[in-house]
Design a binder for these strands. Structure first.
Lengths: 229, 229
DNA sequence: TCTTGTTAGATTGTCGACAACCTGCTTGTC
DNA sequence: GACAAGCAGGTTGTCGACAATCTAACAAGA
């Protein structure tokens, strides 16, 4: 019998689809930070009862992109400059760890996948599809976490990614101009293929840092504006 | 007007209480790994309808201590040796980071709280209340995360703690004898009060490592037994 | 004018019932 | 006896309605 990998069957519950829909709406910025999610309205729009919608919202609350106050409502999380700093500094630490864990596991399949994802970023960049550009860049970046073969680490990264994606999408929407070129990824990919682990770690640190500074400046701007109200 | 800090009022939803009840049942090992949670049965026992129960279960699924398969059921997560290794190695990394972040923030309040929690561990040890001993030890350990002033890091740690607590509780239940003395914590506390950050980091690494080796051996035993079925 | 009590409307939390689905057993056929 | 089809029981997923709670507007009193 030939060895054949079947992908898992799709979740066929309404709940799972609702989760996907809501998550996408939040991470692309269609639902803005602080916005309240009216259960009745959303359930009517989706042609679904409130039960699966509420369960979906509970999941997203635990995922950290929604927040719930009993009898008051469920809201998209607010983005503060401190949140970004926190997420960023933890991300740096995790990156270093993930690269360390992945390093001995790198093989041809890893390199191929690396190229595939890098190509996806370049394509999104050429198409000027900024939302997709953020998505693919994070997927490229997530490869080291998938390869690290540590399920808890991967979960942690995915939770963090939700927030990062949201932050970048907001930033992107605000300035409404294309994200910088993909040269940074070029170096990143090259270093991951190379033999100097420390160099890869160092680059990951600095590479992410660049986008981060801009992002942070944007968030500080938001807060300054908010404090004037 | 005198400055007075009111603590937030308790969540008064059934859902929140159910979450607390279930979490406790899982983390103390009353609900065993792999066990299925029958919604109807539990809802009847708690005198609650299935709606808030299901929402509570969704939260615990996202928290990582339950797992759900559509139309099949919701189960307590299985514990594999690899899970423990994964959680442990990530924990080491996070500890180092947390100590680094906390270090400059240490003040008298920190030291006082450190002593308070240490005392709680000693008390639980004297009372031979093993469940509480695990709880308090993890709370003592969690202080550096609370003081690190990084909300994302704290969340991550709390998720990890759920699993760690479950692992230790299982181990504890299995061998059914008191956990070793609190001398290890004595050193830990002393080092956190001292001025040598590296030493504290190194100790945290090794200190946790001791309990861990036993835990791991236990998990491997579980798997060996399971594979014979 | 400010504060306090009341009330109406809207929203969230919870409930009981029904629909969809899975599992294991039975039945019938070869 | 082996195997497939179909049925029965039980469990999860979803629904619509009701109860509890919050908010804001309004009225009454100091």
């Amino acid at each position: 019998m030939a060895k054949l990998d079947f992908s898992p069957i799709a979740d066929t519950t309404r709940r799972a689809e609702i989760v996907a829909l809501l998550r996408r709406a939040i991470l692309t910025g269609q639902l803005e930070p602080g916005q309240k999610l009216n259960e009745l309205r959303i359930s009517e729009q989706m042609r679904v009862s409130r039960a699966p919608l509420r369960e979906a919202m509970r999941e997203l609350v635990q995922e950290g992109i929604l927040t719930s106050i009993p009898y008051a409502g469920t809201f998209v999380i607010e983005v503060t400059a401190k949140d970004i700093v926190d997420a960023y500094s933890l991300n740096q630490m995790l990156d270093e760890f993930a690269i360390e864990q992945t390093w001995p596991q790198r093989d041809q399949r890893f390199f191929d996948e690396l190229d595939r994802r890098h190509e996806a970023v370049k394509q999104a960049t050429r198409a000027k599809d900024t939302t997709r550009q953020i998505e693919t860049a994070l997927q490229l970046h997530g490869l080291i976490y998938e390869w690290a073969d540590n399920s808890v680490l991967l979960e942690t990264w995915q939770r963090l990614t939700s927030r990062l994606q949201m932050y970048f999408a907001l930033h992107q929407r605000a300035r409404n101009e294309p994200v910088p070129a993909e040269d940074l990824h070029e170096t990143y990919v090259t270093l991951l293929k190379d033999s100097d682990m420390r160099a890869a770690q160092r680059h990951a640190r600095e590479h992410i840092g660049l986008d981060f500074e801009e992002l942070l400046a944007y968030a500080r701007g938001l807060e300054t504006r908010a404090s004037k109200n």
